[in-house]
Simulated assay, not measured.
Amino acid sequence: MAGIDGTREFVPVRIAVLTVSDTRGLAEDRSGQTLADRIEAAGHILADRKILKDERAEIADQLRAWCADPEIDVVISTGGTGLTGRDVTVEAHRDVYEKEIEAFATLFTLVSFGKIGTSAVQSRATGGVAQGTYLFALPGSTGACKDAWDEILVHQLDYRHPPCNFVEIFPRLDEHRRRK
């Protein structure tokens, strides 16, 4: 994997974290805290952090609100990506996406397979773009959050990471909305 291009200056990204859980409060939210800690350690800005219950409409409404907020560049959710009846985070994300980043799910599955073997098939991690904002839905385990951040997002959210990264195309994410 390519390293950091030292000729480029680091660009901090403003990231909101959403934990989806019917049972956790802020004190018990280890996955959300894991993401918050890694975001700040990487030099990015924790723009907001919330916990919501597994309710599709409420999750989608929060995602839309953050996408409309010019102070938020990226949203990372944790939890609600499994196969049970209450797991609706993926559906809520897809209600909001303008474009899905299919390769994010594929790459996350590859990373997970290396750690947890065939149990990786139960993950429905997903990524997409809406209103010029990146959105990523991760499983609720701290291990999955660490894997997604350490193996994928820390690199793709770093402008210095060659040959390409999510940050360098920020200005073009909503080009279709601008008048020509």
Score class of each variant (00 low, 15 high):
residue 57 A to Y: 05
residue 44 H to F: 14
residue 102 E to R: 08
residue 46 L to K: 00
residue 170 F to N: 09
residue 34 T to Y: 09
residue 102 E to Q: 09
residue 102 E to S: 11
residue 173 L to R: 00
residue 113 F to A: 04
residue 74 V to K: 09
residue 16 A to R: 01
residue 71 E to S: 12
residue 117 G to R: 12
residue 32 G to F: 10
residue 145 C to K: 11
residue 107 L to S: 06
residue 51 I to K: 00
residue 38 R to Y: 01
residue 24 R to T: 01
residue 109 T to I: 07
residue 116 I to L: 06
residue 49 R to P: 03
residue 89 T to C: 10
residue 72 I to V: 15
residue 54 D to P: 04
residue 93 H to K: 06
residue 111 V to L: 15
residue 23 T to L: 00
residue 157 L to Y: 03
residue 70 P to C: 03
residue 138 L to E: 13
residue 21 S to P: 09
residue 65 A to P: 02
residue 60 A to Q: 03
residue 95 D to M: 10
residue 154 V to Y: 10
residue 55 E to G: 09
residue 103 A to D: 14
residue 94 R to D: 11
residue 68 A to N: 11
residue 45 I to A: 05
residue 5 D to P: 03
residue 56 R to Y: 05
residue 91 E to K: 06
residue 115 K to D: 15
residue 178 R to D: 13
residue 73 D to G: 01
residue 149 W to T: 09
residue 150 D to S: 08
residue 167 V to N: 04
residue 109 T to D: 10
residue 81 T to K: 06
residue 134 Y to V: 07
residue 53 K to I: 06
residue 16 A to S: 08
residue 72 I to L: 11
residue 140 G to H: 01
residue 96 V to E: 05
residue 126 T to P: 02
residue 132 G to Y: 13
residue 86 R to Q: 07
residue 158 D to E: 02
residue 49 R to Q: 14
residue 164 C to Q: 13
residue 177 R to N: 07
residue 180 K to I: 14
residue 41 A to N: 09
residue 173 L to Y: 02
residue 52 L to G: 01
residue 20 V to I: 14
residue 112 S to R: 05
residue 137 A to S: 13
residue 138 L to R: 05
residue 51 I to C: 01
residue 4 I to L: 15
residue 165 N to K: 00
residue 87 D to E: 06
residue 104 F to N: 01
residue 133 T to Y: 02
residue 9 E to L: 13
residue 122 Q to H: 15
residue 116 I to M: 11
residue 124 R to Q: 10
residue 64 R to G: 04
residue 19 T to P: 11
residue 153 L to Y: 08
